[in-house]
């Protein structure tokens, strides 16, 4: 439907104002990250002045004292490692249980769907104890835990896609003497590219931001994720260093914003696809 010009300008203006308000909390945090800590809680909406401006002191504190960059590296390793492993293993798993018909494979599919609706608190305690006993309390071990707990959604989405593609091409390849492994990597995997992107984005969003699972599973003396460091700063005894928290918040949000702006098209498609299937 065409709108008339006045209405169209009004629409743009209204949303411009709303958008400015919408992102303002992020800019307020950014401003405060350059102020000294006592002035942050007293007057967070004031611009930094000559007395309150302390340049990158808060960032220095966050990095030197709270080891924020280590947390960024661990979070990155855990997220990238888990997402790659989840994509590879669950897509193979989903192809197999969809193509091989039988009681076992349908049962496995149902189990995966079931696991999607179980809240984390249900397995919180037992999962962290199991991970501890199996020495999975390292970032590398956590990859296995994420593969297990995150398999449900991924298998569900991959299976949905496999069901929609014709079996003929795969059968033709197999008759020509291709092994199942070769068939999977040369024929199935390329067709599933859009699903890989959707699943990859949904799992990345989840694992990057996850707090409780790594908090309960990881050996906290050695490894911390971004969310864990920020939560620890607040939770520890003594005075809370608002300045360092602000710096950490900014450093936590910036990579997310860059990732978002770079892959926005896929993220929005991935969300829409994931939701329709969910």
């Amino acid at each position: 439907m065409k709108m008339n010009k006045a209405l169209s300008i009004l629409g743009t203006l209204t949303f411009l104002i709303i958008s400015v308000f919408y992102v303002s909390p992020l800019f307020i945090v950014l401003l405060n990250s350059f102020k000294n800590k006592t002035n942050i809680s007293l007057s967070p909406f004031k611009l930094p002045t000559q007395e309150t401006y302390i340049a990158f002191e808060n960032y220095k504190m966050a990095i030197d004292h709270y080891k924020f960059l280590d947390a960024v590296v661990w979070t990155l390793i855990i997220t990238v490692g888990s997402v790659l492993v989840i994509l590879l293993c669950t897509s193979m798993f989903a192809w197999f249980i969809t193509r091989v018909k039988g009681k076992v494979t349908s049962f496995l599919y149902l189990l995966c769907v079931f696991s999607m609706v179980v809240p984390f608190q249900m397995v919180m305690f037992t999962l962290s104890k199991t991970a501890d006993q199996l020495k999975l309390n390292t970032p590398w071990g956590l990859v296995i835990v994420y593969l297990g707990f995150g398999a449900g959604l991924a298998v569900f989405m991959f299976s949905g896609f496999v069901k929609s593609i014709p079996i003929d091409i795969e059968e033709a390849a197999m008759i020509d003497g291709s092994t199942p492994l070769k068939t999977f990597f040369a024929v199935v995997l390329p067709i599933m590219k859009p699903t890989y992107i959707s699943v990859g984005i949904l799992e990345t969003m989840w694992i990057w931001n996850d707090f409780l699972l790594p908090y309960l599973t990881l050996d906290r003396n050695k490894y911390n994720t971004i969310s864990m460091v920020i939560q620890n700063m607040q939770g520890s005894y003594g005075r809370v260093d608002m300045g360092a928290i602000m710096a950490c918040l900014v450093m936590a949000v910036i990579p997310v914003v860059i990732f978002y702006l770079a892959s926005q098209k896929y993220i929005i498609k991935g969300v829409a696809a994931g939701a329709v299937k969910g």
Binding site: C89, T90, M92, F93, W95, F96, I97, L108, L111, C112, S115, V118, M122, V123, F125, T126, L127, T130, A131, L134, L136, I144, V145, Y146, L147, G148, F149, G150, A151, G152, V155, P180, L181, F184
Partner: peptide, 23 residues
């Protein structure tokens, strides 16, 4: 079966099935 299913199944047992039953 071992190549396609086992890795995910093993992790799924560790990360979900066993903790759920034990829970």
């Amino acid at each position: 079966f071992p190549i396609f299913v086992l890795p995910t199944l093993a992790a799924f047992i560790i990360g979900f099935i066993w903790p759920f039953i034990q829970g």
